[in-house]
Amino acid sequence: MTGRDGKAIALHGGVIAALFALNFVLPEYHHGVLARVLVLAVFAMGYNLLFGYAGLLSLGHAMFFAAGLYGAGLPMYHFGWGVLAAFLSGLSAATILAFVIGMLALRTKGVAFMIVTMMFAQVGYLLVYYFGSWTRGDEGLVIQQHARAIEIGATTLDLTEPTTRYMTALFLFSVVLLVTFALVRSSFGRVLIAIRENEERTRMLGYDTFANKLVAMVASGAICGAAGAAYLILFGYVGSTFASIQYSILPLLWVLLGGASTTLGPLVGTVLMFYLIDGSGDLLKTYAPGWNISHLGIVGAALIILVLFFPKGILGTIRDRWARWLP
């Protein structure tokens, strides 16, 4: 183990420990926010694996998040499935979808890939409406509180209770963070970076670039699906908004803000963006009353500013300037 590895491992352990400690000190509102942000950061990490490392910019990741949400939510709502079965159902729905979409969309490159993924996601969004009798469209499904609990032997783990919910979110976040950390440092991760930098040359070196990209796509879809399924179980709601284009743009924004191809960038981006939107709402109400600007205006401005002035995001810039070892 070199010093570089030691620092990186210590940093990740430290972040997880800090998040664990925050559970005991945060006020109620921020405690709830952070639980939600942790799940959304998992979504962003899934996106980052494909966008940051493999260099594939997808505009349709809402479909994997939504596959997780609906894959878990529909059987819970209609057939009364338990939490664990529902989670696995959401996870596998997203994984299978990612495999099928990957087989098709990865035949294209660059701009065509962006549009194809956007269109497949749009099909998914419209399907939610088409099967409105099952999904209830934009009204959505609410999962009752008593259904959102795990029974282990005699004890019941109530996932609607704030601390349990926070710890569950943190558990999922930590697992995914460590998995991505291991993935991107493995030889597979290095092949993905090589594909991002120069696909032709990587192929010439004898790597099957299609297969590697497909694995990245499936892993990315599975992580996003896990985030979706966890979101449904912890917060008990799914509606068509989660399948809309907005939820394909948001993970892109979070990753760009935090820093693409950094393991902790998605967390940083999601936290900052959440509080930026949250805080700007109050500021706009105070200083520009009567303006109907919603958070989408902030999202738009943030996208342009980021892509113009900080294309590497916060952690990407820090890595370039000061901390070369940052994973």
Partner: peptide
Amino acid sequence: PEATIVATIGLLYILQQV
């Protein structure tokens, strides 16, 4: 090409909100 797509998405939201 890729940066401009992201930027025009931003433009989309800004124009809509304006």
